[in-house]
Simulated assay, not measured.
Amino acid sequence: MVKRVETTSDSVVDRVYEQLKAMAVSFEFKPGERLNEGAIAARLGVSRTPLREALNRLNTEGFLRFAPGRGFFCRELDAQEIFDLYELRKSIEISAIRLAIQRARDQDIDALLTFLRDTGPDPGERTSMELVKLDETFHEGLLSMSNNAEMLRVLRNVNARIRFVRWIDMDRINRTKTQAEHRAVLLGVKARDEAKCVPVLEKHIDRRLDQITSAIKEGYAQIYMPAAGLTRAL
């Protein structure tokens, strides 16, 4: 009986965590906004206990901020933090691809090549969110070939924390070029040739601080302008 209660509780915390994470990633909470725990608990239909567990987990993972005596806050869109996360992403992926050159199975490489072919270089009618999801799927699939689960866990955290900026950034990217780079990296892994894939991947991921700052400015406009427009309409 006790075991069943614990399982249900864990399930509730996981559900609330995923809901809050989606809200934090998309900046449904405004940057720097203090979270009203009572209002959020009522909205999600949960008590304060699972809500607080989920909030603490998100704070630990860098999606929220906690100030003692003040509560939880939505993280800011900070250019230096995003830049640091891009550097972390690049470091992880470069290390992982070196492992993948040694460990990747040809059938897994071919499966990812098929994924690139099937999703195609043409963005079509896909939204920026859908295109970023495809890109994350590729990079996580590439890293999976390293057979290092901890690297993959960290990459997924980084991807989620930079996702909002990547949605903005996606509108500026030439998908035909990026898909060609994806293919070149995979073919380099298949040839077990580090010199053919590491430089391409490094340049592919790299972002300058001024590029990130520009994307963040546009991001703030997208966060606040709809609210401003609604206020004017009322």
Rank of each mutant, 00 (worst) to 15 (best):
Q80P: 00
E81F: 08
I82M: 10
I82T: 13
F83C: 02
D84H: 05
L85E: 13
L88S: 12
A96K: 01
L99E: 15
A100M: 07
I101S: 05
Q102P: 00
R103N: 14
A104S: 11
A104Y: 10
D110Y: 03
D110I: 01
A111E: 09
T114M: 09
R117I: 05
D118G: 02
T119A: 12
T119I: 09
T119P: 01
G120L: 09
G120E: 10
G120Q: 07
G124H: 08
G124A: 12
T127M: 07
S128F: 06
E130T: 08
K133S: 15
T137D: 15
F138E: 08
G141E: 07
N147M: 09
N147K: 13
A149R: 12
L152W: 07
V154L: 15
R156F: 08
R156T: 10
N157E: 15
N159T: 04
N159W: 02
A160L: 12
A160V: 01
I162K: 05
R166K: 14
I168K: 09
D169W: 03
M170Y: 02
R172A: 14
R175H: 13
K177E: 15
Q179I: 05
Q179W: 14
Q179L: 13
V189Q: 07
K190M: 14
D193G: 01
E194I: 09
A195W: 03
K196Q: 13
K196I: 01
C197P: 02
V198S: 12
P199N: 07
V200C: 03
E202C: 02
K203C: 01
K203W: 06
K203G: 07
